[in-house]
Design a protein around this nucleic acid. Structure first.
Lengths: 158, 158
DNA sequence: ATCAGGTCGTTGGTCGCACCAACGGTTCTG
DNA sequence: CAGAACCGTTGGTGCGACCAACGACCTGAT
């Protein structure tokens, strides 16, 4: 038998009061759920980000993809390799600027994105279960504020 | 010169609407800031967590430390090794149960914790700069709710 | 008293993510 | 035309989170 003793497993209060700790902790949790879900469909976070960017912005270069999704150029290469291999995107040299590759989303890619988005949506509702609808938007807003602030003002100019 | 062009670097809206994405994104940001700060004092997240737990709960076994801080047993080993090497904790076998090591915080360790906490505090205020005081507590509360819910109800019983 | 099953510390890996340095090819700019 | 800047690519680093397996040890049921 297991006997769930509630007395033992308590976290240090100091950690519970440290926002950055809570953020990374929550991220770890989200990470676990998202990863587990993505692994099942053979995808990765980078796949999702890149597909989403391509859907929204159309054919675009790898460097631009990296900038928009905050992914390192070198990691974009591997991601595109994967996606090309799965026929989700096409990579071809931009005739107008032979330094660049133009990445194009295929129909299969669009489907793929839809699929992954669905998977993530499921995880989302699971993760945010304890929050009301308005709380979720509040959380989203606060996080966005932090990110935008850091992107614009302090820190790197995105 | 750098010329901060604001027109190019926009993120896909799909990502901006995906909470789990925002969370991991924010975590990455927090991670970057925290790491940079911790590296300067030669510490790591695990160090902080372990020290905080020892301060709050007194002498305790490595397994228990792992449980309280959500750190894998094997990673606790390395962390304690580091801390022992820096004279911040002492590791000795529990005479009552020779399977366990009892980890004790030293005075230097207490100081160390204080120091690290100060560093993290600085990062915190930087990270949460765009939020008002009440917004910060809101954020903290929401994150806590998510974590507690997952720890208690769904998922693992902590 | 014994023995199976559980716990603990430890070793030795794996994997994803974020990042950096450097290279050749290309384009832009002075 | 020369140098600066940019692109894709290769190769490598480091942290954080995990997992499997081992010997030593404790405990409970028989």
């Amino acid at each position: 038998m297991k006997e769930i003793e509630g007395a033992s497993g308590q976290q240090p209060a100091r950690l519970r009061r440290t926002p950055s700790w809570l953020i990374t902790q929550t991220a770890t949790l989200a990470h676990r759920l998202v990863s587990a879900a993505l692994v099942e469909v053979g995808a990765t976070r980078y796949h999702y980000a890149v597909l989403a960017a391509l859907e929204e912005f159309g054919p675009i270069s790898q460097a631009e993809l990296g900038r928009r999704c905050h992914i390192d150029r070198s990691d974009v290469v591997a991601t595109i390799n994967d996606l090309v291999h799965g026929r989700y995107v096409e990579r071809r040299q931009d005739p107008a600027d032979r330094r660049q590759n133009l990445i194009t989303l295929t129909d299969a890619g669009r489907q793929r994105l839809q699929h992954i988005a669905g998977v993530l949506d499921t995880v989302q509702t699971d993760l945010l279960a304890p929050l009301t609808e308005s709380e979720r938007t509040t959380l989203t807003t606060l996080l966005r504020r932090i990110l935008d602030h850091q992107a614009a003002g302090t820190g790197r100019p995105e």
